[in-house]
Design a protein around this nucleic acid. Structure first.
Lengths: 343, 343
DNA sequence: TTCACCATGACGCCGCGTAAAGGTCA
DNA sequence: ATGACCTTTACGCGGCGTCATGGTGA
């Protein structure tokens, strides 16, 4: 075999004849010989060189860099490769970000390009640094804009500003059906802040699905999640019935003991106590906790206060007993509350 | 404000004057007016249009597509957006693959571009469809080639062909120091095949680190992993001492009972029994298991056979008892073995 | 003669930066 | 008069495909 012509080489190497000539014009290869009439003749050595070029190109080197790499023996690869790694990472990051944006556009099911533009603007505003812009975007999202639900969910799960977060929760409450399911994924986040925002957002939705999720939250290992869920469930009592609410009561009582949103918790308990099926249960729970709390602890006074709003015999008896409590504050409070009840 | 000139617009929109003129030449915008001397004058409406163009461009639309989208009201976005999503995904996949290749090149710490070319060729061959090419690559990797250890590890963890897998394990055994640690990640894989290949590869390495990992494998929930580790540990007995080997014994006995590599397991036990600190322990283990095994089960015969190779008094006594076993096969075997021992 | 192949040279694509050569405004 | 603007026209980059025009070989 004297030498291959350019077509053979193109077929064997997968590099088009056009590119073989182009490589030559850049000085990357030079066929070993030419026939009498000027046809290029490539040797096996040339073929190897071509494969080397293709190898380096497959790493993303430009043709210029391939030339430098193959010609200068002193040209060390370490830095160039490190640079390629960095650039590739950056490209992947950019493309990934683009992909989520595109998916959210798709998610919003825009009817025309006007819709697309609105969604893009919305996404941009939701990702803005300025709380004001985020706020306006959240309010707009509650309107008749085609809405990328996932983007709203993501925003609600990561929004630090309480006002904006409120607007986002409201927007989510107006939005489609499987919002609760998407929010629920935030409950499993590693970030406690995300978990709290997830439960608060679910609490803002009043569908049965949201209620069911909140009930699941009562067994969460995250105390913040449990308590948020309990408060939310208490306010939708009517829809649940006494049976579904018994699990809420101990969580609310814990909140009073730990002085975490204790006022809200006490209000919630008093509201629940309007349900005759729960009154005695709640009163008994509070009384038990009073007995368990260490003498002189401030928790006992808060529990006593909470008891005041619970009707029924158990409460009256407990208050009577407490009016002679060792803790002076508790005794005074109980006495006072008893007097109020007598009127 | 009568109208902004191109420089103002460029500053406000972030689009260079050059591109504003380019957009115009493509028919994307047309400034509302011109001054007497021909300066472009942009209206607020024009500005909005420019932002719209930029919005669509930010999604990856070509300038041509932007034009189509903004001009034809009937041009629905759904398909185009879906296409962009697909293309973006493909690009990310390609870039990701490139990134791992680059990282592996980097990992091999090539001194010059010759090294890089060798590594590229090696990676290509390791990823080849042809088992023959993979085999040759694995053999080459054991040589003086600059080696991307991660690539070898990945190949060893996913190699279906047993011959190639063997060559890869051998190459890994010659390779750098933290190979065992990298292989160990395969132990946590979801794929049982990967787990098995991981433990077999670790078993091919005789450093202390590998031995320690194998010892951890004895408590793996994956029975295949446990057994592979036990076999491997048994053959490196000397380095471990009696204390480190006691955990191996029950695993090997299980293998005999379950007829999984039972011959290898029995050989391993007999080799271990050469250690006087283990002899009685092994014999006792086998005898206990014999007692536990249901009468007439084939496992009893295999256990009896295994017992034959264990020296010491416990074995002799056990064989004597077994020679009157209810199971005819067991009794015959035991009698025969006893006779052999007597010689 | 036909057909497959070779040669060189040139244009287009896409999204821009940059520059040249000249006019306008405060 | 200076300097900051504006105008149009054109080239270059990178990595090719493609086409035109003409010659070669079996």
């Amino acid at each position: 075999m004297v030498g291959m012509r350019i077509g053979d080489v193109a077929r064997r190497s997968g590099v088009s004849a056009r590119m073989l000539r182009h490589y030559e014009s850049l000085g990357l290869i030079e066929p070993t010989g030419r026939t009498g009439v000027g046809y290029r003749e490539y040797s096996e050595e040339d073929i190897r060189r071509i494969f080397h070029i293709e190898s380096l190109r497959s790493l993303g080197l430009s043709l210029r860099d391939v030339g430098r790499a193959l010609d200068n023996p002193g040209f060390a690869p370490a830095e160039l490769v490190a640079g390629l790694v960095r650039q590739t990472r950056e490209r992947i990051a950019r493309e990934t970000e683009l992909l989520t944006r595109l998916q959210r556009i798709d998610d919003a099911e825009p009817g025309d390009w006007e819709d697309v533009l609105q969604v893009v603007a919305l996404l941009q505003a939701l990702g803005s640094e300025s709380a004001g812009r985020r706020q306006r975007a959240a309010l707009a999202a509650a309107g008749p804009v085609p809405m990328p639900v996932d983007a709203l969910v993501a925003a609600a799960l990561s929004e630090p500003d309480p006002n904006v977060a409120g607007a986002l929760r409201w927007a989510l409450a107006q939005a489609g059906d499987d919002v609760p399911r998407r929010l629920a994924r935030g409950l499993a986040s590693e970030d406690p802040g995300v978990r709290e925002r997830a439960v608060r957002s679910i609490a803002g939705i009043s569908t049965d699905e949201a209620t069911a999720l909140l009930r699941d939250c009562l067994t969460s290992p995250d105390v913040v999640v449990r308590r948020r869920a309990a408060l939310a469930l208490a306010t939708r009592g009517a829809a649940l019935g006494s049976r579904g609410l018994t699990d809420v009561i101990p969580v609310l009582i814990d909140m009073i003991v730990d002085e975490e949103n204790d006022v809200d918790a006490a209000d919630a308990l008093s509201a629940l106590a309007a349900d005759p099926g729960l009154t005695e249960h709640i009163a008994a729970g509070l009384v038990t906790r009073l007995a368990d709390s260490g003498a002189g602890s401030p928790a006992r006074r808060r529990l006593t206060q909470a008891l005041a709003d619970i009707p029924g015999g158990t409460t009256s008896k407990a208050l009577a007993a407490l009016s002679e409590d060792d803790d002076r504050g508790v005794a005074v409070t109980a006495t006072y509350l008893l007097k109020l009840r007598a009127d």
